[in-house]
Design a protein around this nucleic acid. Structure first.
Length: 278
DNA sequence: AATGTAGTCAACCGCAGGCAT
DNA sequence: CATGCCTGCGGTTGACTACAT
């Protein structure tokens, strides 16, 4: 890959280099980000002499050079999460990616395309998805009942469909998904605010559903309560979800590690790009 | 061993939203 | 308020690799 100078046929268009990045270019970009932080991508070429567009620089950084990226194959557990979140959000890859620390939207998108788009999903996936949707519905109705008992029913919840309505098409793609996690990060008591005002973004509510589902006990507590308190370490739900989805102990262990934050510190340098949920 | 095919991944493109001027 | 620029997102493309024949 690296050093292959002839990707994409053309090497320069309008003065911009295109095609695969060289290690030299990578170095320059990393150095630039280290000095100036993320953002201002259009000025990178001026600052570093790179003949790359800001867009290209950002993409390279986000998808490849970011230090917090997780390398390697998507695990079955991550796959389950992708499936579940895709059931909720459709092709909102960046939103889904925020729930998978170290994974990029591009990666998830590619993974989905290769594994689910062409062929039929595996039966396990199908079952997981079906069960997920069913449970979510059940949980919603339970929540609704609880809230009714408490005398408050958020309207947004009432309007939720089976969970697959938001397919990522432009019609309601109003927020590009950025609000979900950011809100969670800066506003630890989303649920409280939601209950009080009920004016949070649709995705916030969906996210709560997802989290409530994926880790019914502790994740919900984390999300609703002490979310993202100082990039903390929150090992969460060793086996709850895996009992539902996985194939036994093995999954239990990995689910546990998946939700474990020990290795997923919100690196200040990369915080902008990697604000994970918890 | 050579060739064909499918799978994977990095990168590009166009579009839309947000923000500064 | 209008306009232009920057950034981020989703879709698509093309090169490389692995596997099958």
């Amino acid at each position: 890959m690296e050093g292959a100078p002839l990707g994409w046929g053309r090497q320069e268009v309008d003065g911009w280099r295109k095609g695969p990045w060289t290690s030299q270019e990578d170095k320059l970009l990393v150095e630039n980000v280290r000095q100036h932080g993320e953002g201002r991508w259009n000025s990178v070429s001026k600052l570093t002499g790179l003949k790359r567009s800001g867009k290209s620089c950002r993409l390279r950084w986000v998808n490849y050079l970011r230090p917090d990226l997780k390398r390697g194959k998507i695990t079955p557990q991550e796959e389950s999460i992708i499936v579940q979140l895709h059931a909720l959000w459709g092709n909102r890859w960046s939103t889904i990616a925020r729930s998978l620390p170290g994974r990029t939207d591009n990666e998830i998108k590619n993974y989905w395309r290769t594994h689910f788009k062409k062929g039929k999903p595996s039966k396990n996936i199908e079952r997981a998805r079906a069960r997920f949707l069913k449970q979510r519905q059940e949980m919603q109705s339970q929540q609704r009942q609880l809230l009714q008992l408490a005398g408050q029913v958020p309207k947004d919840h009432e309007n939720q469909d089976g969970g697959s309505a938001r397919t990522g098409t432009t019609a309601d793609d109003d927020d590009r998904g950025s609000a979900v996690v950011d809100d969670a990060c800066v506003a630890p008591t989303v649920a409280a605010a939601e209950a009080a005002g009920g004016h949070h973004h649709h995705e916030d509510l969906i996210m709560h559903d997802a989290m409530d589902f994926m880790c019914p006990m502790s994740c919900a507590l984390l999300l609703h309560g002490a979310v993202h308190q100082g990039g903390g370490t929150g090992s969460c739900c060793g086996s709850t979800a895996s009992d539902e989805y996985g194939s036994g102990e093995e999954d239990g262990a990995t689910w546990g590690s998946l939700w474990n934050l020990d290795g997923v510190v919100v690196d200040d340098a990369a915080a902008g790009a990697c604000c994970t949920l918890w």
